[in-house]
Design a protein around this nucleic acid. Sequence first.
DNA 1: CGATCTGTTGATATCCTTCAATTTTGGTGG
DNA 2: CCACCAAAATTGAAGGATATCAACAGATCG
Lengths: 258, 258
Amino acid sequence: MKNAQNPPHGPLVRRLSRFLRLTERDVAALANLTNRQQRFPARANIATEGDAPRSAFVLLDGMACRFRTLSDGRRQILTFIVPGDICDLHAVLLKRRDHSIGTIMPTSIATIARERLLATIAQHPRINAALCWSALQEDAMQREHVVTLGRRNAHERIAYLFCDLVWRNEAYGSNGRDFIRLPMTQTDIADMLGLTPVHVNRVLQDFRKDRLIDLDRHRLRLLDVGRLMRIADISQDYLHLEGAPVEIERECARQERL
Amino acid sequence: MKNAQNPPHGPLVRRLSRFLRLTERDVAALANLTNRQQRFPARANIATEGDAPRSAFVLLDGMACRFRTLSDGRRQILTFIVPGDICDLHAVLLKRRDHSIGTIMPTSIATIARERLLATIAQHPRINAALCWSALQEDAMQREHVVTLGRRNAHERIAYLFCDLVWRNEAYGSNGRDFIRLPMTQTDIADMLGLTPVHVNRVLQDFRKDRLIDLDRHRLRLLDVGRLMRIADISQDYLHLEGAPVEIERECARQERL
DNA sequence: CGATCTGTTGATATCCTTCAATTTTGGTGG
DNA sequence: CCACCAAAATTGAAGGATATCAACAGATCG
């Protein structure tokens, strides 16, 4: 039962072991959790609003987003989905999807069969706990998004988004450099933040002039994270990266002894 | 194993049986799920951001809201909490709360002990499923909120909020009249919808002039739901009130036979 | 029955949108 | 590898939705 957080693991393991240490058995089970892989080109729909929910999946590589469109065409992006993110884990309980999922760039996913998922969480308390945490974290991110759209102005919104993306990449991304890939267009950013593409562009210019960011060819480098955090008035608390409370650790250990 | 949806049940049973039929055993278990009750006056905090999470609770009577405040005082309400809503069901997994919960009016809650909760869902598959559905529904409501703040204008936002509150009251509220209690102030509505109180007031005047609503002394009557729905461009799909898919029903029935 | 919170109204300011044109980028096929 | 094309980014000018400020009226509650 060794520490399983060493580098060469898939995005799902990287993501989940952010919460608590997984055993080698857990890691092996996660490797068997997914079955077939699928690739999608850029700007393709992985799932469409109104459809009956299909199986859950993990995003392995690329980037996607959840979104909804109003009947006059206005679009709101709900979340950007990055490698390691799990989608539609419990969606079987619903009859029809209330939002779509589309790719931003070429993206590959691995589907998760419901039967195997249920069996896995029944036998692996740490995976169960980590999946719950993952869902809680998504809820918390959604809440931060609501705060952003409701009470932050354009500069604050963009500062928030960039911090969020960089922090998530640091927490369980794979690249160890000081910049991140920003594959989405300025229109995507606008649709995420409730702004117009034109205004997003202007704020980006401001940030460049203020030496806050370096953004070129979809590569983003934060030149002054502290100042961006102060602009957005945000800390990374909402990501809940602090790991499991001891009681949860103990409870998992106890269940593993059975 | 009779239908358990008849009137004289608590808000929790009313809420959960919206999803699937609960057995008499389930209803009895739900009655035993909560232990002590607590009353809070209006404008009191039930839980505060930064605290370590306490036990989960059900709101029995009154109204509350989740909210976050930025450091300069701007406040964003995340959700209004109505009777039957369950709060912080899995919060034990987190070390500190990322938002507060406060009352709008005098409110009573019933706490749920973690041990008893775990035992109950282990023995009652339908309760387990219904609680999962409840969490999914909350996620869907949160998504609709994001769409509202990101892409709807002031009139559309208020039309959305009023439909939402009325629909939720119809679905599992207790009063059978054609108006609902609207205990929150216009400032609360503004903080929910990302507007200023002044502007909320003006939109309300517009709605009154257009004979869309009748709002007086915190009693709201929708005079033309169809038109409000068209204004907000919304249907009640996002509330997922259609009940459990047959496979879930079957799965619960199978588990009950063990 | 007064103090305070809430609702209402008007005038002015501003952030962001809209519209429209131009440049740049990135992808594709020859 | 280059030429070409569509998509994305950029810039300017003007308009509109909502915010801000301020004052007052009305409701609520101890």
